[in-house]
Simulated assay, not measured.
Amino acid sequence: MRAAYASKFDDDNPLAALAVGDRPEPVPPGDDWVTVEVRASSLNHHDLWSLRGVGLGAGQLPMILGCDAAGIDDRGNEVVVYPVVPTPADPRGMSILSEHHQGTFAERVAVPRANLVPKPAELSFADAACLPTAWLTAYRMLTTKGRVDEAEAVLVQGAGGGVATAAVVLALALGKRVYATSRDAAKRDRIAELGATALEPGARLPERVGVVIETVGAATFDHSLKSAAAGARIVVSGATAGHEPKVNLRRVFAMQLEILGTSMGSAAELADLLALCRDRSVRPVIDSVHGFSAVEQAFARLHSGAVFGKVVLDHTR
C-alpha cells in the first residue's frame, strides 16, 4: 500500500527525511485491533519532529507518519481514529500512532477497536480528520483543565497554529469573549474574521480573563500571567518559543492562579468534541487540502510556518 514515512532523520532539513512509496499492509497485533481504510488525515508538527528524530530511534525506521485519521472500519462504519495507544514499552505507558505503531499516512492503519469513535454524518472526513490531536488538545485545555464554563473571557496566545486556532473557534462556540495574539498581521486579520479580538503579542487586554491558552511558552508567559484574573487557569500544552519562562511567583500566589499542563485528551473527550462540532455546526479551520499524491507539498506547506489552521490529506486522490 502507498504510505508516507520517515526513512531517516534530518534535523536541519526534515523534509529530506520524508519518503513516499509502498509499505507492507498493517497487521493487527491482537484480536482487539482492527484495520481502518483511511479516507482523510491531517498533519501535525509532531510529524516534522519525527522526521528530525525526536521521539523515534533508528531501530524504529521506517515509520509511517501521521496521528490523525478518519475512515471506514471493518464493519463499514464511518469512524474517527483516537491516536493514543497503550504501550507498555514506552515509559509513559502509552504512545500516539507513528511512535511505536505505524501511523495514519497510508491507505490503511491498524488500531485498537476501542480507539474508534463514530464519525457524525454531518462532518466530512476531512473535517473529522482534523480533530483527534490539535483540536482535542484545545478542547481539553478549555474544558477539563481550564473549566471554561466558570469563565467569561479567554486569552489564546499565538493563534494561527493548530491548537491555538482550534481554541479560538471552540471558545467562541462555547459563548466566551475571546482575545487572541499573533505576531503576523495577516493572521490577526484571520483571527478577527473568526470573531475574536485580535491583538499583537503583549498588548494590554480590556479585561483580565479566566482562562489562558498557552502553546508559545517563554515569549508570552509573562503576558499570560499579567492578563489572568484572580483564580484564573493558565493551561499549557506547548512551548514553541522557549520552555523555561521566568515566572513571577508573587503574582501566582497573590492572584491564586493555577498553572496546568496537559496533552491530548481521552477518547471520551474526543466523542464530546465531535458532538459539539455536530450540535453547534463547528467546523475545523482548514488551511489547505492536498491529495495523497501531493503529500510532499502538504509537508512543505506545514514546514513553511505560514499555515493558518490544519493541513489535510485527502486519501481518495
Rank of each mutant, 00 (worst) to 15 (best):
93 G>V: 12
127 D>S: 14
107 E>I: 03
214 E>H: 10
174 L>A: 07
178 V>W: 00
199 L>C: 14
127 D>F: 05
108 R>T: 13
192 A>L: 09
138 A>C: 08
176 K>F: 11
100 H>W: 14
167 A>V: 06
99 E>S: 13
96 I>F: 13
97 L>H: 10
161 G>T: 11
198 A>W: 00
175 G>I: 01
220 T>Y: 04
118 P>E: 03
207 E>I: 11
175 G>C: 03
166 A>R: 03
114 A>F: 01
132 P>L: 12
223 H>D: 14
222 D>V: 01
130 C>N: 10
215 T>S: 15
107 E>W: 03
204 R>K: 15
136 L>R: 12
194 L>P: 02
117 V>E: 02
151 A>E: 03
201 P>R: 03
175 G>K: 02
89 A>N: 12
219 A>C: 10
86 P>C: 06
151 A>N: 07
221 F>R: 01
88 P>F: 05
143 T>D: 09
142 L>Q: 09
103 G>L: 05
199 L>S: 10
91 P>Y: 10
90 D>Y: 01
174 L>N: 04
171 A>H: 04
129 A>I: 06
87 T>N: 08
97 L>I: 07
160 G>W: 09
225 L>M: 11
145 K>R: 15
210 G>S: 11
154 V>M: 09
175 G>L: 00
173 A>L: 05
104 T>W: 01
171 A>D: 00
221 F>N: 01
189 D>N: 09
225 L>P: 01
99 E>V: 14
142 L>A: 12
144 T>C: 04
105 F>E: 06
223 H>S: 15
120 P>H: 05
84 V>G: 02
208 R>Y: 01
171 A>E: 01
137 T>H: 11
95 S>C: 11
149 D>S: 13
101 H>T: 05
151 A>Q: 08
115 N>G: 11
94 M>N: 12
165 T>H: 08
224 S>D: 03
106 A>E: 03
137 T>M: 07
104 T>Y: 07
188 R>W: 11
131 L>H: 02
137 T>V: 06
208 R>M: 08
140 R>H: 13
217 G>M: 09
116 L>V: 01
94 M>H: 13
165 T>K: 09
141 M>A: 14
189 D>E: 15
195 G>D: 11
84 V>H: 10
114 A>K: 14
161 G>Q: 02
84 V>Y: 07
93 G>T: 12
117 V>K: 05
154 V>A: 12
174 L>I: 09
96 I>K: 11
97 L>R: 10
129 A>D: 06
114 A>S: 14
110 A>F: 12
148 V>Q: 04
197 T>L: 06
95 S>V: 04
166 A>C: 02
178 V>Y: 02
150 E>I: 00
88 P>H: 07
146 G>M: 07
167 A>C: 08
167 A>L: 09
121 A>Q: 15
111 V>T: 11
202 G>F: 01
226 K>H: 13
102 Q>I: 13
196 A>G: 06
118 P>A: 13
201 P>F: 00
109 V>D: 06
163 V>T: 06
